[in-house]
Structures are given as C-alpha cells and as structure tokens.
Design a protein around this nucleic acid. Sequence first.
DNA 1: CTGTATCCTCCCCGATACTG
DNA 2: CAGTATCGGGGAGGATACAG
Lengths: 130, 130
Amino acid sequence: MEVTALSDNTRGDLFDPACPTRALLDRVGSKWTSMAVKLLAEAAPQEIRFAELRRRMPGVSQKMLATTLRALVRDGLAQRRVEPTVPPRVHYSLTPLGLSLDGPLAVLRAWAEEHMAEIDRANRDADAAG
Amino acid sequence: MEVTALSDNTRGDLFDPACPTRALLDRVGSKWTSMAVKLLAEAAPQEIRFAELRRRMPGVSQKMLATTLRALVRDGLAQRRVEPTVPPRVHYSLTPLGLSLDGPLAVLRAWAEEHMAEIDRANRDADAAG
DNA sequence: CTGTATCCTCCCCGATACTG
DNA sequence: CAGTATCGGGGAGGATACAG
C-alpha cells in the first residue's frame, strides 16, 4: 500500500520524538524534499502541477517525486488538488505550515550558498594532506 | 582506512555540487551531526572532550560519534585538539565556520520545537483517515 | 498525466570486539 | 580514554514496467 518507508513513519529509528530537530531533519533531509518546498514556496500562492515540478527538478524520478509529495501532504506541509479531467491534472501547493517552514529553510539555503565553497575547500585540503 | 562513507565524500549520489542546499543537508542531516554542532556551539568558546560529548548525546555509539566528529573536522566546521597525556584527552570545538552555521541551525531548531507537534498531528490524522 | 508495483543496489548506522 | 576494524540489517532511492 505504502510506496516506501518515506510515506509511512514506521521508522522510529532516525525519528526521535524527544528531539524535534532530528525529526524535522529526517523529513527535510530526504533527497528531494527541500527542493520541492523551495519551488512550491516560490510559486505561492500559485499551485504547481506534478509534471511542472518534475520538469523543474532535474534528475528526479516519477516514483521519488510522488513519494516526496505524498510525504509532504501527509505531514500537513503541502496540499493536493485533483482536477477531475481525463487525463487528470494534479496541483500541489504549500499549506500555511509549509510556507512557515520555508523561512528557516531559506536561511539555511543562504548559508549554504555563501559557505559551501569553504566546506569543499576544507575537504580538498584534507585530501591534499592525505 | 576510512571509517565509513560519512568521512570520505565519494558518495556523489546525494551530493550535488550544483545544489549547495542539498550538499549541506547531506552533512547536517546525518543522524548525530546537528546535535553535536548544537552542543559544541552552546559550549563555545569552551571545548568539549570526546567522553563528555558522548555523555551528552544519549544513544550515540563510540563509532558514530567518532565518525560524526571526523566528518565535522574534515568539513572545516570543527577543530580537534589532542592533549598528549596517557591516556590521551581529545578536545573538540567549532571553528568560526562551524559557529556561523549554528545560527541557521538554531532557526531550524526553533521552528521544529514550535511546529513539529503539528506535523505529528497531521500524521495521526492521516492514519485515522487511513 | 499521475501515479503504483517490483526489483535491486548502495550505504548509513548499530553491535561488538580489539588497540595504543 | 579515544579511537579503529568488522559484520550485518534495513531503508533510501534508482530503473523499469504497468495502470487508471
């Protein structure tokens, strides 16, 4: 029934209810989640269709995009709206909760864009040092 | 030679140099990293010994703590200082780069503490609707 | 178009034991 | 005390095929 363990939360392994930060990182840390949230936040209050999201997320597979979006919806961070046409069109958007998460994520994105080069440099130095 | 793939960065799988945010989340998202950064940031400018960190991180294994700290050092986020005694005492502290990362992480922690309950609730609702 | 179902691979992480 | 070495499970995530 469930697609992968990303949609059901039977993990309980990486998920520690006593540490909300780890619980959050377990969700946002999955490969495509942060990019999906970013795209949906930038588009808000507009919705984005499944195919459009897929186009804007190079490399994502159908399965993983579906899984990622399903997890976001399940977590109450995103909404799903189906147009009952043939073929169906499915639109996604962030909930207020999801939108409120984009602020903190934007802070993280800004730090990453400013400082990831330093981390890469540190790694190259470590490699050079053998 | 390397302990696990967390220390060498031969992954290249989850790591996309074109997306600094994902690259950062691949590091910070590993199970014990955010907690280690938090503890080291709170203690700054004091250092923390390996055993003390271990005591403050319930459930962490020796191996994973060593791996986590090694990765932080390799990324230039933390420093390692060895006291040449017998037995040796090893002290860890954040670098300026590591300290600068704690700000964004603190923002994320604050959001998590405020809103993770809503996410849990959304999941329970989804289960109930099951 | 928007998914789901299967299969498969990789590697994170835990448990345990050993070293200087 | 502060690691390293080794083994093994389990889950994330990709490829592919199929369905409504």
